[in-house]
């Protein structure tokens, strides 16, 4: 077939040849990828077990208490945390609460329309909530203000600004970065029993109303979860797939490990390829490597912020 012969002599193609390659990529995606996978690379020359370039920017949104913008390749997520006061539940008087919401606005992808929300959004939202709570990253007792009367409710909203594969990874990283950036505001109790914020200048003058939390605090983390999504195809494991790859090959495995080495979640939902133990072990090893990478990137961006 004419198209496959043009693939064979790919190195010496001119503009006319380029069009054939693009058409081949759309019409026969599996064969197009097989050519590259046989040499352990992907079409953009990324090795199979490398993730895309990741950048974290802390504090892009100024009207909230903590925010972060994360880009993994082209997938962009914006996470923001707003703290509001609530009365804690009767059986847990010392614990705050967390509500996670993941939105995919029509901006992010051509498949999402204003009337038709993305199917995957509530699923990712629930998975994020489960992972963040079960990894023990947040100590809810730190979110308590007055035992039994007032505690912080953290509303974490994550917006997908561009969907290009590995949405869960980017969302989890943005949530973690936003929590690292979070500064709990200073509050005190006024005469009506309501909690109000105290602006910095009034600190010295406040006499009888003691400040409920002493300084603009950052939360402390026991262990931070990081995730990696891999795609399984025949015998290959592709780390951090793009949206195009996810469309073609449908077996996804998402592994979440935390900084103390525990497996927080291993999510594989169906797919054509069955995973055997050795594949699972490889995925977990890749995830651990990626967790170390992401930890460094997060620490770097935190320290950059301290300097400013």
């Amino acid at each position: 077939m004419a198209s496959s012969s043009s693939i064979a002599s790919k190195g010496s193609l001119d503009i006319a040849g380029e069009m054939e390659v693009e058409a081949f990529r759309r019409l026969f995606p599996h064969r197009y990828y097989e050519h590259y996978l046989a040499q352990s690379v992907r079409p953009d020359a990324r090795p199979l077990n490398h993730a895309r370039e990741t950048t974290i920017a802390l504090g892009p949104v100024t009207s909230v208490d903590g925010s972060a913008l994360v880009k993994i390749g082209e997938s962009t997520m914006l996470a923001a945390i707003k703290l509001e006061v609530m009365t804690p539940a009767a059986d847990l008087p010392d614990k705050g609460c967390l509500a996670v919401d993941f939105y995919m606005p029509p901006v992010c992808s051509p498949t999402v329309r204003p009337g038709r929300p993305a199917e995957i959004a509530p699923v990712i939202s629930k998975k994020l909530q489960d992972v963040i709570v079960s990894s023990g990253m947040i100590n809810f007792e730190e979110l308590s203000l007055i035992s039994g009367k007032a505690a912080w409710m953290a509303y974490l909203d994550i917006y997908c600004l561009n969907a290009d594969g590995s949405l869960f990874d980017a969302a989890l990283l943005s949530a973690v970065a936003a929590f690292s950036h979070l500064k709990v505001p200073l509050v005190s109790v006024n005469d009506n029993g309501r909690v109000t914020t105290v602006p910095g200048e009034l600190l010295e003058s406040k006499s009888e109303l003691e400040l409920v939390n002493k300084e603009r605090r950052k939360l402390s983390f026991k262990s931070i979860p990081f995730s990696l999504t891999c795609l399984l195809h025949n015998k290959y494991i592709l780390a951090d797939p793009t949206a195009e790859e996810e469309d073609i090959m449908d077996t996804l495995v998402t592994v979440v490990v935390d900084s103390i080495g525990q497996l927080v979640s291993l999510y594989k939902a169906g797919g054509m390829v069955l995973a055997n133990t050795s594949t699972v072990k490889d995925c977990v090893a890749l995830a651990k490597r990626r967790a170390a990478e992401l930890q460094n990137i997060l620490l770097e961006s935190l320290s950059e912020m301290e300097v400013d």
Binding site: K82, V85, T196, T197, V198, P199
Partner: peptide, 8 residues
């Protein structure tokens, strides 16, 4: 829930 900064 209410935002603590409302009164301010």
């Amino acid at each position: 829930t209410y935002s603590p900064s409302q009164a301010l």
